[in-house]
Amino acid sequence: MTTHQWLMIAVMAAVVIFLRAFPFLLLSGTKRPPALLFYLGKVLTAAAIAMLVVYSLFGVLDHSRSGWSNLPPGLLAGSVTALLQYFFKNPLVSIIAGTAVYMLLIA
């Protein structure tokens, strides 16, 4: 682990702790927090995770070396993961099965 990586870990932990402490630091018990905060808190999580799905999938495809040839296996394995999670709600099973499908398809 490089110093930069440890600093990244520290920054992420600090941001999460700051966010959890936010209402206690800035809002008094009587004041209502801004509605915008509620709105962003509600919509940004799903948006951010969806961004990470697309971005990390692109990273895995290794486009610069293999072009789009890994895209169909990636989409297929992604669908398998999503369907398993939707119906069985077992994260470990969904992740392992989806990853196994991908590894087999590109092998």
Partner: peptide, 30 residues
């Protein structure tokens, strides 16, 4: 290919988030 596990994980988190209807449009936009 094991790095696909990361994508799979984000998909799992997203599927669980999308059980709530309010998250559908933000997810599509993201």
């Amino acid at each position: 290919g094991i790095d696909f596990a990361m994508v799979a994980l984000f998909i799992v988190v997203l599927v669980d988030l999308c059980r709530e209807k309010a998250n559908h449009i933000p997810a599509v936009i993201g």
